[in-house]
Simulated scan of single mutants.
Amino acid sequence: MKIAQVVCVWPPYGGGMGRVAFEYSKILSTEHQVTVFTPSYSPSQTVSEIAGVEIKHLKSAIKYGNAVWLPQLPGLIKDFDVIHLHYPFFGVHEFIRPRPRQKLIVNYHMRPQARGLASLISSPDSRWSEKLLVKRASTWIVSSHDFADVIVRPRLGNIKINILPFGVDVNFLPGQAKKGIKDNLGIREGEKVILFVGGLDSQHYFKGLPVLLRALSGLEKVKLIVVGEGNLRPKYELQVSQSELNNKVIFAGAVTRSNLPDYYRLADIFVLSSINSAEAFGLVILEAAACGVPAVVTDLPGPRSLVKDGQTGLVARIGDASSLADKISALLKDDSLREKMGRSAHELVEQNYRWSTIGSQLLKLYQEL
């Protein structure tokens, strides 16, 4: 089959959606002809390629965040057998209309929840466009039963949903971090390491870093490593300075995919502090787990399904710095419990969440279209 993967972001842009589209394209290309359609990036930016997959970077004169207007796209995808849309893709998902012989798969990655003026457009747009997509889609993919039952079905009704979680590649494994990383980051002897991995741009405001920073205030002998980059970083750095947390927080900036496992291995615990259902899964939870690191996550549909509370990590109340601090403290003060949870988390990934396992399910889904 000829498959068009349509996605608003593509690696090395941070975030789960682009990473999932990348992995899907790589898996599907083993049996099908795959072309990726994604907005063009800065000419100076290196873009991740896949052998045997054509990646078309489409130019647009109108962009706002990750929303772009691509009027040329319908003409480019008209001869494909399957259109695989990674939703949301504002400026594009509204105009995806499969021809009679085409199949449309919609990957529902997240519930759109913009802030400020953007919400005045995105909120009515998503309600309207989701109604259109319900009529047009052959099937939907959602990453967990939890998110499907709590968020997707109440919004979209009785639609055909395939539950297909995201996966982790084999480079994420337990082990020792490369020599020198601790010293380079300024981590002192006896300090416990908390890791946060996420975009620091406006599109990823929902990651909840300000809540985690507030939780940090009452914790002693800890170092929070913040991996990620974006336009909100100065705002977060100001919060650190005003809260007198400079000796507890290190902004590591963007980290390459190949070096990221070492940051997980450096950590005692991982924290996902997201504040709303724009966080639908939390691939970073699985990356940490694959490296044997237990997680503290917020009680959101999707992320909480990746953690067996009390076995592979702990679940905190949403947006509650005190609850987050309590859960972090409980893990940091009990080395035996933390190590046991880390082993269980790794086993969970090996059993259910490697891309080799997920890939087989994806290929089967396509065979049954």
Rank of each mutant, 00 (worst) to 15 (best):
G282N: 13
L232M: 08
H93R: 01
R127P: 00
N158L: 07
E220K: 09
S123A: 15
K182G: 14
A67E: 05
I225C: 06
P100I: 07
Q33W: 07
V20W: 07
D146T: 06
A295D: 10
K333N: 11
E368F: 15
L76F: 07
R97E: 14
V297Q: 06
A4K: 14
Q351P: 00
L70A: 04
D334W: 15
L212D: 00
I55V: 14
Q311L: 11
P11K: 14
S40K: 12
Q176K: 14
W128G: 04
E350N: 15
E189C: 09
S29W: 13
I77C: 10
I27H: 12
Q203R: 11
A215G: 07
Q242L: 09
S329C: 11
K56V: 08
T30I: 02
A316C: 00
F37N: 02
G198W: 01
W140P: 10
E94G: 14
P174R: 12
E23L: 13
V197F: 10
T312H: 02
N66P: 07
E237L: 04
Y353M: 00
N158D: 13
I181L: 12
A280E: 00
R265V: 05
E350R: 15
Q311V: 10
L365M: 09
A215Q: 03
V36K: 12
N247L: 00
P301Q: 13
A61S: 13
K364G: 15
V227L: 04
I358K: 02
P112C: 02
D183L: 13
V36C: 07
P100K: 15
D320I: 07
L245Y: 01
P98C: 15
E31S: 12
M1R: 04
I187T: 07
F90M: 04
R354I: 05
R19P: 03
K223W: 03
R115D: 08
L156D: 00
P261M: 05
S60F: 11
L164T: 11
R188I: 00
A325C: 01
G253Y: 08
L260K: 01
E279D: 01
H32C: 11
V307C: 01
L245I: 03
V168H: 02
A290T: 01
Q361W: 03
K59G: 13
Q367H: 08
E54I: 10
V349M: 04
I27Q: 03
D309P: 14
N171T: 10
W10P: 10
L216W: 11
D326E: 06
K2P: 08
T38N: 02
Y87I: 01
L232P: 06
I250T: 12
N246C: 08
R101D: 14
E229D: 14
E339L: 06
D183P: 02
T312A: 09
I105P: 07
I27A: 04
R354K: 09
R99G: 00
E220M: 04
A330N: 11
M1H: 05
L73R: 05
P74F: 04
G253H: 03
L245F: 05
V168F: 03
R304A: 04
F95S: 02
W355C: 05
V47M: 15
Q351K: 15
F147K: 12
V9D: 08
T312G: 01
A51I: 08
L224Q: 03
G218D: 03
D125T: 02
V47G: 09
E189R: 09
R155V: 08
